[in-house]
Design a protein around this nucleic acid. Structure first.
Lengths: 215, 215
DNA sequence: AGCCGTATATTCGTAGACGAGTAAGCGAGC
DNA sequence: GCTCGCTTACTCGTCTACGAATATACGGCT
């Protein structure tokens, strides 16, 4: 399972789905892709775009349709998707939907080394994060409200997912924060003491040694 | 903000946090890191490990402590973290905790191109995913239960986070699935018809054209 | 004693990701 | 009618990620 894709970059999926629509040249794809997510994240990686398009062509998933110049602008190559490309798009989508792809999220990584900071620091940082997340949720909700009048839900589904996950994160962080600020988080005094003394208590050290859990 | 890290790979964070513990040589780090997450995901990328260690050393975040051989085994270089390295570890952790790093998750990508599959297919695939996620939750819960008897919660926090997010995903998928199978998902007939006829209805096409939302 | 499977430890080559650079057209204002 | 700056469109070189190969030691079995 999960046979390796010839072109593994998710940008390739975006390109395939753009071309499934109609033939385009790379820059045009970028413009189209900007639409969906620009303000959001992922500021089109130019290098990757052209590399990816080249690779897709090399593997026969897309092909050159025409290549000419208008005026004396740099040459423009228009690509179209091939039958193989459509198959890849469908197959890849199937896999993405069916198989959880446990990745290594950045925040999770941060949490797992959280102990290197004193608890009150952590509380402050999480407060910042909470604010940022709430802003994100509000922004998304506005966007969703704006679009949902005109666009069928089918095309907004990933926004709904984002919102659901963001809200879950919001809730989880708020709960943790509450424990940290109210002092009910177990082991808080030891954690604080460790940072104030500057050294690991023998007890903590032993624990950490036994469990590589802490990374 | 978010000044670029000299070594951006998360593996570098892992290495730093391992060395914050005590000096080690690379293979030893790998063994330690395996402990935390092996069965889970991320099967130590050997190439990256040595590259990353090299880069960290180049940037003065870690340094060679000793380098010798025991018997005629390949030479072993033991590294220790530097003051700069500790600072980087702390600063990086702070950033990871405070700043949401909207990445581009694979499932989300799948959702956003979901329309390329017929709805009943999607329902089947999501059912598979749901099963996989539930299995994942059960596994994590067991692990958590096993560890929480011995390890302070501080070191299990990222597991709690994982569980919270997984459960949110579970709930969201189950709800969507219910809409798909019961037929209450809006636009279902059109979606199905589109795949049965093999062509995009003019209506749908226009919608999709107007909104690049669909990638 | 000899053999083999597994653990130890690292190097290297290749493919990919991406930022920064390049270069032409296009419109607005002085 | 010239220039300044923005948009279009792509190229190139560097730095990174990672798999696969390599090489030796060790311990158990026959």
């Amino acid at each position: 399972m999960a046979k390796r894709r010839k072109v593994a970059n998710l940008l390739a999926l975006a390109v395939l789905s753009a071309l499934a629509h109609r033939p385009m040249h790379p820059y045009e794809m970028a413009a189209a892709l900007r639409g969906w997510n620009k303000e959001h994240d992922m500021g089109i990686k130019w290098g990757s775009l052209y590399t990816v398009v080249g690779n897709l062509a090399k593997h026969g998933l897309i092909e050159e349709l025409e290549s000419g110049r208008q005026g004396r602008r740099p040459e423009r190559t228009v690509y179209q998707i091939t039958e193989a490309g459509r198959e890849e798009l469908v197959d890849w989508t199937r896999e993405l939907l069916a198989v959880p792809h446990t990745e290594f999220p950045w925040f999770r990584a941060g949490l797992s080394v959280m102990a290197v900071l004193p608890p009150d620091d952590v509380a402050g940082l999480l407060t910042d994060r909470l604010a940022a997340i709430r802003k994100g949720i509000a922004g998304l909700e506005e966007l969703y409200g704006r679009d949902s009048a005109q666009v069928p839900r089918l095309f907004l589904i990933e926004m709904e997912y984002d919102l659901a996950i963001l809200k879950a994160e919001e809730g989880w962080i708020a709960a943790l924060l509450e424990e940290l600020t109210s002092g009910t988080f177990p082991g808080l005094p030891e954690w604080r003491a460790f940072h104030e003394s500057g050294g690991l208590s023998a007890e903590m050290k032993e624990l950490a040694e036994k469990n590589i859990t802490e990374f």
